[in-house]
């Protein structure tokens, strides 16, 4: 098969050339401005795919301030973030859940907070569900909306896969054992849960408030249900009134590098609150 090789070789050379002649990323002005606090080196972050998009934005801004610093973000889930930090494969881990009991050798720095809200399809007339009603729905005791005052429509219970942070928050809040839940659909990411609920009139699910608010604003056919009488909005999460929320963290070993600490400080500072809000999370107020 020399013919494809012949075709590919120029292509590869062209690509190599293209990659080689990339223009310098940072302007000189910024370099001078940050000369005072000179930081250099590379950071590797790894972990939660929920947190990663936000952290890449923060990292891009941090790199612009410190031209000698280069930050690479990798994903693979909270579990991978923890494992990579422990194995020194990554400098900082990203998690969308608090540290567990067997992870206390690490230190978590809260980056932001994310509320978790129940959602139903937009056409569903149910105004609110009581705690017991939610428990009954998820454990299969109630399986039709007519029993809750809605139309005669089977309830489709959308649940999350084992280990997901939103699932743990949900189970803890309603004090349900995971094995007691009778799901009709199990999903991974929030986006998938939103699509599943939007596409099925009888569905109920629970997702990140930020994601749900955004997608609802963009036209997804979902509605956020209040919880314990408190509306499910980012503002209520920010005010620490909304009862179901999770923390998004940056995780390091007990002896992080100065550069890692500098980045964490920056990521928790007011300078990036706009980025946190733009990612539809609630900035951590220390």
């Amino acid at each position: 098969m020399t013919s494809p090789l012949r075709s590919f070789l120029p292509l590869a050379l062209m690509l190599a050339a293209l990659a080689g002649c990339r223009p310098p990323a940072e302007s000189a002005g910024e370099a001078e401005r940050s000369a005072a606090n000179r930081l250099e080196g590379r950071l590797l972050l790894s972990g939660s795919s929920t947190v990663a998009p936000l952290v890449s934005e923060i990292a891009a801004r941090f790199e612009a301030m410190h031209p000698g610093v280069r930050i690479d973000i990798q994903t693979g889930g909270s579990g991978k973030g923890i494992a990579d930090v422990r194995a020194a494969q990554a400098d900082i881990g990203m998690t969308s859940r608090p540290l567990k009991e067997d992870e206390q050798d690490l230190v978590a720095h809260r980056l932001a907070t994310d509320g978790v809200a129940l959602i139903v399809q937009a056409s569903n007339p149910i105004p609110e569900l009581t705690r017991q009603q939610v428990i009954d729905i998820y454990t299969g005791a109630i399986d039709d909306w007519s029993r809750l005052g809605g139309a005669a429509l089977p309830i489709q219970v959308v649940h999350k896969a084992e280990g997901r942070a939103t699932l743990e928050v949900f189970l803890a809040h309603f004090e349900i054992d995971n094995t007691a839940i009778r799901p009709d659909v199990i999903v991974g990411e929030n986006a998938q849960a939103i699509l599943a609920v939007a596409g099925s009139p009888g569905a109920i699910g629970y997702v990140s408030i930020g994601s749900a608010e955004t997608e609802a604003r963009l036209g997804a056919a979902i509605r956020l249900l209040p919880l314990d009488g408190i509306p499910a909005t980012s503002d209520e999460v920010a005010a620490e009134r909304f009862p179901m929320s999770r923390s998004l963290n940056l995780v390091v070993t007990s002896e992080p590098s100065p550069l890692a600490l500098a980045f964490i400080d920056y990521a928790r500072s007011e300078a990036v609150h706009d980025l946190v809000r733009e990612a539809y999370f609630v900035p951590s107020t220390r």
């Binding site: 939660s48 795919s49 693979g76 889930g77 909270s78 579990g79 991978k80 923890i82 494992a83 859940r97 567990k100 067997d102 896969a161 084992e162 280990g163 997901r164 942070a165 199990i186 991974g188």
Partner: peptide, 11 residues
């Protein structure tokens, strides 16, 4: 794929 990302070592 569902559970790998959040799994601890034994899981």
């Amino acid at each position: 794929a569902l559970e790998m990302g959040y799994a601890s070592a034994s899981h």
